[in-house]
């Protein structure tokens, strides 16, 4: 790798392929094994007997898992929606307003939740809820709303990063053009900026959704006794030992996530290709236009 970081060919190409192959083996072996063993008939997780969908059947009839899944999904959709709204506002502030009183603190609040260890965030939020619970009952019983608030807090930081990176690329003169043509500030945002931000908004939504679906530690701290999310259920089950039912659940999660990522990726690549083709077409036309203009210039 040391030698090859300049050249595109030969040894460098082999090094590149080997590195990526090793990385993929490292990343996919655990997941694939998991999926394979989810089709194992035996109750023993590690000994292969025969192919069976038995554990999937057990899974769909497990009411605890189904209700935990529903709860996780509800929270994730709600949290992702709110995070995208807050993230868009924060990104707007960072890119367009840029300078105002307390701007450093604002930036810190919008980045720190991404990196802070979850145990700290979880504990801090729980203690807040206990304190607030005296005045606001929603926080006292620490149900779905309390979990939602916690998830929005850390998801909106991720949403901000994603939306901001797109926001930076927006052309301010397009917004000025809209104003120039008579659109007020709100109209400019919804008719001009939002459509351009849409890919980032979708990405931010998906990221927040996954983050919320996936969160274990923070949710464990704040969730009241009646609220159990899917990761909490899986975690407590794993602590009791490996179980083929969890394998089946994991396989489904992996399947859904892969399909989601793949579709997202495919639509992105398709769009890029379409735009590239259109741009090439327009360039070809421009060339023709230029040539005809030269001829026209000489004739005229």
């Amino acid at each position: 790798m040391m030698k090859g970081f300049l050249k595109h060919h030969g040894a460098s190409n082999i090094a590149k392929a080997v590195i990526l192959l090793l990385a993929l083996i490292f990343l996919y072996t655990p997941i694939m094994t998991l999926v394979v063993y989810s089709f194992n008939e035996s109750k023993m997780v590690t000994i292969w007997t025969t192919f069976s969908l038995h554990w999937y059947n057990v899974l769909v009839h497990d009411s605890a898992i189904i209700s935990a899944l529903c709860m996780s999904l509800t929270i994730a959709v709600m949290a992702a929606s709110a995070s995208v709204i807050i993230g868009t506002m924060a990104a707007f502030v960072m890119v367009r307003v840029r300078q105002f009183a307390g701007e450093s603190a604002f930036m810190l609040f919008m980045t720190a939740p991404m990196v802070l260890p979850e145990v700290i965030t979880g504990l801090a939020l729980l203690l807040l809820y206990v304190t607030l619970g005296d005045f606001i009952p929603v926080f006292a019983d620490r149900g779905i709303i309390a979990i939602w608030v916690a998830h929005v807090t850390f998801c909106s930081a991720y949403a901000t990063v994603v939306i901001r990176s797109r926001f930076i690329e927006l052309d301010t003169s397009v917004e000025e053009a809209a104003k120039d043509l008579g659109a007020g500030p709100l109209k400019v945002f919804f008719a001009i900026m939002l459509p351009s931000l849409m890919p980032a908004e979708v990405a931010a939504f998906l990221l927040s959704f996954t983050m919320s679906m996936d969160d274990l530690v923070i949710t464990s701290f704040i969730a009241g006794p009646e609220s159990t999310t899917l990761p909490m259920l899986i975690f407590s089950s794993i602590r009791r030992g490996l179980s083929p039912e969890i394998n089946a659940l994991a396989a489904i999660i992996i399947f859904v996530a892969s399909i989601g990522t793949f579709i997202g990726w495919l639509s992105m690549v398709r769009k890029q290709k379409r735009i590239a083709a259109d741009v090439a077409k327009a360039q070809a036309e421009a060339k023709r236009e230029r040539e005809s203009s030269m001829l026209g210039g000489l004739r005229g």
Binding site: D171, S173, V174, E176, A177, A178, K179, D180, L181, G182, A183, G184, A191, I192
Partner: peptide, 16 residues
């Protein structure tokens, strides 16, 4: 700007 009877053609054209 959105209430002025002046319109502008931008350098980058700024098409939506």
């Amino acid at each position: 700007p959105y209430k002025r009877t002046i319109n502008m053609m931008f350098q980058s054209y700024a098409l939506f």
